[in-house]
Computed example of a mutant assay.
Amino acid sequence: MKLLVFAHVPPPFHGQSFMVQQLLDELHGDESIELFHVDSRLSRDVDDIASASLRKLALLLGYCIKAVWVRLRCGADHFYYVPAPGLRNAVYRDWIVMLLCRPFFRRTIFHYQASGVGGWLETEARGWERWVSRRLLGRPALSIVLGDFYHEDAAKLSPRRIVTVPNCAPDPCPDYESRLKPAQQARARALGQAGTFRLLYLSLCYRDKGLFDAVEAVAKVNARLRANGLAKRVQLDVAGKFYLPEEEAEFNVRLGQADLIDSQGPLVVYHGFADEPKKRELFAQADAFVLASYYEFEAHPVSLVEAMAHGLPVITTRWRILPELFPTGYEGLVDTKSPGQIADRLEGFLGRTDEAGLRDRFLRHFTRRAFGENIRAALLALENE
């Protein structure tokens, strides 16, 4: 198989670009798949992602010309593409790519890293937009989705086949058993009497990702601990870039209020964007992880996979695919927009470690090796059709 990957890698860094890099790294040197890559980066940074401009249009046209050149020069006849979520400007971008590139390729493969385009077609798209979308985007040879929840959304474009391939992360702590686990257990034992339980939020700083719910939950749980006369505290470490300036301003004002400050200092600490060394440091210090998302286009957050890899108890929502990532009956699931429930789970996790086996679940389902095996099987099955 000769596969052209038309997708961008970091920078900017986000879940989609990270996973494209994982795909390229995993398939590099594979004897059964000859790989070609057009790095179709349009945005300078995270703030630039949702905008439209003539600069981006010119870049996109150039990438399409390069893709067609690779097809004609090198014989790459399978076109791999990451479709947009249900956002009008992004869908229009997909139209341009499919109009210019798809006629030259024998098979088109969609790998969804965001949800919602199928729902958008049914509920928000104008009649002519639905017609154009189905003409240009319809009937791909293969649609790869991140979980069974998204089959219905992908089916709106009538793919010939749909397969589930969960996202992955390289194991960030292969020395977990000898280094991180003993430290986590020691902190949990010490917290039986007193101390600080550190909760980590590492994602895009955005209300719909559950950031403000996590902040309110920390205020609530600390108020309960003080009311019960316990010498324990919960500190929320926040890492990531803010999506909206007005939310950053609101966040900063909230952090200065009395219920988020105690005698030892702030109960919420903002670390800004975390590079790899800082991210490793924060995960190593954390006792639990929170991502109480209700983001409209939430797909398969890599940060949750990384938290599982670090053996952290995780608090997340019963939203879209997220429950699929965890064992049946997992106690860390909460309803959306429910700071009180997050506070309840935090109280329950105090003094405990990974009793649900999330580290083991990562090793079974979400390593790059598992991802590579699944993605190869899905791609090479096309050769047998």
Rank of each mutant, 00 (worst) to 15 (best):
L4V: 01
H8S: 14
P10A: 03
S17K: 07
F18M: 12
Q21P: 05
L23P: 10
L24T: 03
D25C: 12
D25E: 12
G29P: 06
S32C: 13
F36P: 01
D39F: 11
S40K: 02
D45R: 01
V46I: 11
D48V: 00
S53Q: 03
L54V: 13
K56G: 08
L59Y: 13
V68N: 01
R71Q: 14
R73M: 08
R73W: 10
C74W: 14
G75D: 06
A76W: 01
A76V: 00
G86Q: 00
V91W: 12
Y92R: 15
W95H: 04
L100P: 09
C101R: 13
R106D: 10
R106H: 09
Q113A: 11
Q113D: 08
V117M: 15
A125F: 11
E129V: 04
R130L: 13
R130M: 13
V132E: 08
R135T: 15
L136G: 09
L142H: 10
V145R: 06
L146C: 10
A155P: 03
S158F: 15
R161Y: 02
R161F: 04
I162P: 09
I162E: 06
T164C: 05
P166Q: 03
P166C: 06
P166I: 07
N167E: 13
P174R: 06
Y176H: 10
E177R: 15
L180N: 00
P182G: 06
R187G: 00
G192P: 03
G195S: 11
G195D: 10
F197A: 03
R198D: 05
L199V: 00
L199P: 03
L202E: 10
S203F: 07
L204G: 13
D208C: 10
G210M: 01
A214Y: 05
V218D: 00
K220M: 14
V221F: 03
L230M: 14
R233Q: 06
V238G: 08
K241C: 08
F242A: 07
P245Q: 04
E248D: 04
E250Y: 15
L255M: 08
D259K: 15
D259M: 12
V268F: 02
A274F: 03
E276M: 08
K278Q: 12
E281A: 14
E281N: 09
A284D: 11
A284T: 09
F289N: 06
V290Y: 01
V290F: 00
L291I: 10
L291S: 05
L312W: 02
V314N: 01
W319Q: 02
P323W: 06
P323Q: 03
G329N: 04
V334K: 02
D335R: 06
T336Y: 00
K337W: 05
G340T: 05
Q341V: 07
E347G: 13
L350G: 09
L350D: 07
G351Q: 05
E355T: 11
A356M: 05
G357N: 05
D360W: 09
L363G: 07
L363T: 11
F366Y: 06
I375G: 10
A377G: 02
L382D: 00
